[in-house]
Design a protein around this nucleic acid. Structure first.
Lengths: 356, 356
DNA sequence: AATAAAATTGGAAACGTTTCCAAACAAGTT
DNA sequence: AACTTGTTTGGAAACGTTTCCAATTTTATT
């Protein structure tokens, strides 16, 4: 790989000092028109571009924001990154992305790496915000940062869904549709404080509405055995009429499993999901779920870090109850009179109902 | 933000020269045990970390690979990035990510930015590989790089699906199921050479099998008017029995639209998608589609760039026909005898068939 | 004890920028 | 003609590393 031209090469070709080249190209300080055109010519001829490395060393700051997320493949984070990306790009910043694959151990090294690369700020999702070593390092160095999908004690340093409140809203939805005993379906329960918070919020919500304590159905990485697990789960808890899945993929998977067990959703089993991915609207029955806005959150976290850097006013994160919305859908049945009462929630399958 | 400690601070605290600190910490050259422990103590006390910026300036290389993709939110790219990320991380490299939002104009500036940040290599998806200015710059500088989802003349510098062959395979599937006249549904047709290649491959495939030339149904960003468009489309082309959607989301959307028009999928209209996202297996009917492996491709592209850098042997991309697989599904009907003949392709809806 | 060989150490240059400062020059003003 | 003022210019230091090289110290050999 042949070496890039440096400012020295340009100065040589233009017959001036490096200081002059720097001034001309950055439009800082004065220069004669004659000089300007000579520099311009040299730049063109050499296809010169500044080395950001040299600049960063001198200015001791990079135009780079570090991101630490558990996964890129998970659409929640992908969307959040997309939102952040757009904000960053329009401010001339770039995104240095590290993925922890849900492994808490790699969080710390990710953060150290970002620090040594001298990122101007960090947006991060950790497995446990209360006791993250990486996070304390960031705070110690007072590096501009913002949590994403973790709740922070200080409001302005976190953009996140209020998982507990959202889960309680799910309990409310079940309760309003006269469900009493439900289950909670989780994956990776121990690897993230988010799943736990959803469970706790859900339990609290059920309790507050006089419902039975939800039963926990936990599964491993592969969905393979989900159908069998569901079968056993329903056998052990025969009075369960609904399941809250901690994300929409799990919700769709459990719908499929129910179908395999000859159960009709929602007549025999109602399902509510979490996240609000678009696909939920395309399936039949449509998926009742909590709708969140990952893109907005990612963009917010990005803007927060930028305003730390630029010392401008912080964007205001949405208040707790504005971080999500409940979306009704065909996968949630009303357990009252057998005849449907509002035409919207259908106790009978509506798969090929053209009006839907 | 308080300044980080530098190697000078460490040298001062340990009472030695900076050269010694560098040698000790990098384990290059010799040092007395006594010296080693003094340096270690100083490092610990100051929480010292090397500045990669200083290192990069000196070594004129960064441990960073640049990525240019059209979108992060699109699960195809998200998965590819995930795959690449894992490869990079295990080799101690980081990912600098720039997203072009399908705008060809921003490709060039993205690439310039990456070059000025002195990335060690670039993985990129461009809108048109044949005439990408950014790509020629990269080639001119002989920067380690690899195309992703673009086909390159030189085989080892590209990891991609063979869109034409895959689309032809779709034509084969339709043909084998006795469909004769079909449609091709595309979004952003003009913004990417991939959609075009799929269309061309599909047309060629249909022709080769004696099917009628596929009609083009093109839609804009929002899916809002899709149902209406489909209605008009089918009115104008009443003999159409199947639609090839250029990605799975479009496929799911068109299934929904068909449902809204009181059409039964697959009895009245068969659908084949492209990409093979997991959700396709969870919906009812399951989606017939071309399955690709974005993660594998992303990982491959990452490995290719790394082997450029390390001058090791290139990983071999899969041969054209190994880049995809056709997956049968309930959304494709056999148009032969009304009674089903192999029990797999069901001409009648099987939504609540417990055996499915 | 004298010498050779090996190990340990630190100074200084280099990487590509920006910016301070002083020098050189041009153009007015007496 | 002798100033002042203002504009244009380039040298040099600094940012944080690595590495070459020479100087010093230790160890081994005679």
């Amino acid at each position: 790989m042949h070496q890039s031209a440096t400012i020295k090469d340009v100065a040589l070709k233009a017959g001036c000092g490096v200081a002059t080249v720097s001034r001309v190209l950055n439009n800082t300080g004065s220069a004669s028109p004659e000089m300007r055109s000579r520099v311009a010519a040299a730049v063109k001829e050499l296809d010169f571009q500044f080395s950001e490395v040299g600049r960063s060393l001198q200015s001791s700051t990079t135009r780079t924001i570090g991101f630490v997320v558990p996964s890129i493949a998970n659409p929640v984070y992908a969307d959040a990154l997309q939102g952040a990306q757009e904000v960053l790009t329009s401010s001339g910043y770039q995104m240095l992305l590290i993925c922890t694959n849900y492994s808490p151990e790699s969080e710390l090294s990710a953060i150290r790496t970002l620090i040594s690369k001298q990122v101007a700020g960090i947006v991060l999702t950790v497995s446990d915000a209360e006791r993250s070593e990486g996070l304390s390092i960031i705070r110690n160095r007072s590096l501009p940062h913002c949590l994403l999908y973790n709740n922070a004690p200080v409001s302005h340093e976190s953009w996140s869904v209020d998982d507990e409140a959202a889960a309680a809203r799910v309990a409310q939805a079940f309760s309003e549709n006269l469900h009493n005993q439900t289950g909670f379906l989780a994956l990776n329960f121990n690897k993230s404080d988010r799943a736990r918070q959803r469970y706790e919020g859900y339990c609290a919500g059920c309790k507050a509405r006089g419902m039975k304590k939800p039963q926990l159905l936990e599964i491993s990485e592969d969905f393979e055995d989900l159908t069998m697990k569901l079968k056993l789960f329903l056998r052990e808890n025969p009075s369960i009429t609904g399941i809250f899945a901690s994300n929409d993929f799990l919700a769709l998977a459990i719908v499929r499993s129910a179908r395999k067990l000859a159960l009709n959703v929602p007549r025999d089993l109602s399902i509510i999901g979490f996240d609000g991915i678009d696909v939920g609207l395309m399936v039949e029955p449509t998926l009742a779920t909590i709708v969140t806005e990952p893109k907005m959150l990612g963009a917010g976290a990005g803007r927060t870090v930028l305003s730390f850097i630029n010392k401008t006013e912080f964007p205001k994160p949405p208040s707790a109850d504005q971080t999500f919305n409940f979306r009704a859908g065909g996968s949630l049945a009303y357990l009252g009179a057998e005849s449907s009462d509002d035409g919207k929630i259908t106790p009978f399958p509506s798969s090929f109902d053209p009006t839907n």
